[in-house]
Amino acid sequence: MYHLKTPLAIGLITIFLLQFDPANAQKAKENLNVVFIGNSITHGSGLPDPHTQAPPVIAAQKLRELKHIGTVQFSNVGKSGSTTLDWLPENHKLFLTAEKAAGLYASDEGATLLFSIVLGTNDSAIKGPHGAPVSPEDYRGNLLKIANRLLEEYPKCKIIFQYPTWYSENTYNTSKYLKEGLDRLQSYFPEIDAVVKSYEISRPHTVFSGNKKVFAYFKKHPDLFQNEKGQQGIFNLHPNPEGAAQLGAFWAKAIYKAMDSAK
């Protein structure tokens, strides 16, 4: 029988303590069910195969590769041409698709339900999309209405408002955007920040913002966009496959960061 002060005994005790030390214990993996709400960019418009190339698909793939993330299920309910007005719960239109998607995960208590929302591109247009142009104040109010209803129906859910991407100043298809629209789009960013901040006290660790660098990144890389013919020449609005992959990676990192800070 070994005395407690022998080297072997001390070694065994050290190993035992390390195994049960919380600081050394392996973190449990987080399972996620993500509902992606957005417009044509979220949907994957113009991509050869949106079912495999759209940003939500890539985001889910990237999340599965990250440490401490377990299973990742997702639904892409992005709708082309949609604005924040189209997603308002009281309109009983697109919000129903988000509810239907979330309903698929309602019984899954082993995973966190998360809504990744990116809206604003169509809101910023000079004319064309429903309600455009949407003022910064109304944009903020619409985001609050969407978030409030989601939190009311799914109290344990998390919400992340991703920042919209850049588009070229000559963007003009069936809807008119141009420089005025691009300037308006950037005026929405402080409103996203204000929405997130408003929940810090009432619902801490529940509502988050995405990566602010996404706009500047895509502005510096027009090669990540499809070249689309418009009424003022070739414009850039929708990401190409490489751009969609980059955008999905941005979303994945933002979601991962949000989940980590929510613990």
Rank of each mutant, 00 (worst) to 15 (best):
E99Q: 14
W87G: 03
I126E: 07
S107E: 13
T121G: 01
G120Q: 08
I126T: 08
S40P: 11
E109C: 02
G141L: 05
L151D: 10
K27W: 02
A102M: 06
I69M: 09
P50Y: 09
P136T: 03
P22Y: 02
Y105W: 11
E65N: 09
E153R: 12
N39V: 01
T84N: 07
K27T: 14
A132G: 14
K145T: 05
S124C: 14
I117T: 07
F74D: 12
K145M: 13
A147Q: 05
G131V: 00
L47A: 12
A59N: 09
G120K: 06
P129D: 04
L63D: 02
S82H: 07
D138R: 10
I69Y: 10
G128I: 09
N148C: 04
G81W: 14
L119C: 10
E152H: 13
S40V: 03
L114F: 13
A28P: 04
L113F: 05
G81N: 08
A106I: 14
A25G: 05
T112W: 09
H51W: 13
F36P: 07
L143C: 07
P48H: 08
A111I: 10
T112F: 06
L63K: 05
L113K: 04
K62S: 04
P50G: 04
S75E: 15
K127L: 07
T112A: 07
Y154K: 05
G81Q: 11
L88E: 02
Q53E: 15
N31G: 01
